[in-house]
Structures are given as C-alpha cells and as structure tokens.
Amino acid sequence: MPTTNLRKLRTNLNRRKLINSGFAFLGATIIAIAIIILLGLTLKMAFQGAERITPEFFTSFPSRRASRAGILSAWVGTCLVMLVTAMAAIPLGVASGIYLEEYAKKNWLADLIEINVTNLAGVPSIIYGLLALGLFVYELRLGQSILSAGLTLALLILPVVIVTTRESIRAIPNSLREASYALGASKWQTIWDHILPYSFGSILTGVIIGLSRAIGETAPIITIGALTFIAFLPKSPFKSEFPFLSFEWLQAPFTVMPIQMFNWVSRPQAAFEINAAAAGTVLIGMTLGINAIAIFLRYQLRKDIKW
C-alpha cells in the first residue's frame, strides 16, 4: 500500500515538473521571439542606413538631395529640447513625489491628486500637444520654441517621474527613517541626507524611461510648431562677456530627429529611405546612450549602499 502511494505521488510530481518546465520553455521562447524580432528590425535599419552614417551626416543641414542631407539641426534640436525637458521634469517630478509620499496627509485631496497623476500617464501625447499650444504658445507667449517643446515633453513624462519617485521612496526601509529621527534629524534632513540619496538610483530609472519616451515623440512637438527645414542652429548658450551664459537659444525655432525621419520616410525618392534609416539608427544610439549613462550612474550610486 505505501509503495503504490509513493508511486502515485511520484507520477503526480513528475507531471507537475513537466508542466513547470513546459511553462519555463514557453516563456523563454516568447522572450527569444520578441528579442529576435526587435534585434532583426534594429539591425536591418542599421545595415540599411550604415552607408549614410558619416561625419558629414552629423554636420550637414537638410537638403533636397539625399546624399547631401544631414541631421545637424535635428540632433542639436533633440539634445536641447531634452535638456529643457530634463531640467523641468526632474525637479518638479521628484518634488511632487516626495510631497505625495512624505508630506501629504491621506485625505481626499491626496486621493484626487493621485488619481489624476495615474490617469495623466495614459493620456495620448497629442492631447499634451494641444494643451501646450494653448497654454505655452498662446497664453504664456513662449513662442514655437525649444522652451515650449521642452516644457511640453516635460509635462508628458511628469507622471512617469512622479510615480517612480514614489515607488522608490516607498522601497526604503522605515527603520532608516526611524534611525535618522532617533539621532535628532529633522524631517527635511532625513529626506535630503538619507531618503533621496538612497532612492536616487531608482528615481533615475524612472527619469530615463521618461526621457526615452520623450525623445521619440513627434505628435505634440509638431502641434506646437516644430519645423522641418531649418538650416541654422540656435544661438550659443555661451558668450564671451559676463555672465558667459545666454538663454536666447530657448526662444529659437527648431526641429527634432523623429520629425526629420518622418519627412524622409514620406519622400518619393528611395534614396531618402537610407537617410531615414540612418537617422533612426542615430536616434536609437542616442536612447541607448542615455540608458547607458543611467545604468552607469545607478551602478556608481548603489555599490556603496548596503542594508
């Protein structure tokens, strides 16, 4: 009797193990398919565009001749817009996250803000474009400029930054807060000296996810009036006389990489498709670059934290 029982148990166990490994296999296959497709698409684009990725491609303005056309105004525009976006979204988003997590009383107002923030993350980007056209361009008269575009994209990624900030603050063990208070630190000292530095790595991840989304956005940027052909660059932010910094570039007209790509893809001449592929490869390179910086920073910051 005990032997049959044991045998039954074994068959049952084996069957479960089979199901288990079957599921693991299924999962691995799905991941492999997804990665192969992604890799395939990226590599195809990279190979198609490889011949056009030369130093001149980065230093020439758009042109009607595919071989002469470059992405200078586009990549400078993208970098400057991203700079404004980061400058606006990071302080605002992190501050909101801290407020909601550490200061806000749990009442209807906090609930309302919370619901709003979560919903904002799901709003289509064109809506942000229309909002920004009305608010930044017409009401605040910021013009169809780098500043407007950067602020628009900052709005777009704000929910992502706020939510990840809250998540990462919440992940910090409460004992750390208590230890800090026990030594006589004020609330702000606790946040600034402990909570923020410890959660910085995770906050950074959220910021990078947001920026990677913003860098590829076209719709809201076109809505507020980004250009397609622009053969000059914004004024330099550095000048020779005091105070050595100039902010005129914020007011400058601009274009960004995805718009340039879109324009090339829709041209009748096949040669422009190579340009589009090359620009796409550069854009992916830029995104990967931002990601690499984030991973490096996170590694640097986390290696000293132990708890």
Partner: peptide, 30 residues
C-alpha cells in the same frame, strides 16, 4: 562620503552631456 561621490559623478556626467549639446551651436549659429 557616499553622497558626495554620487553627486559628483552625476554632476560631471551632466556637464559633459550638456557641453556636447551646446558647443556645436556655438560654432555654427548665425
């Protein structure tokens, strides 16, 4: 010690990224 180091690295990287984005316009703008 940890904090200083972390912010220093972040600062250096931010300055490096910003200057790449900003120096080119300085040369080409008119």
């Amino acid at each position: 010690n940890y904090k200083q180091k972390g912010f220093k690295t972040a600062g250096i990287l931010a300055i490096a990224a910003a200057s790449v984005a900003l120096v080119v316009p300085a040369v080409k703008s008119q």
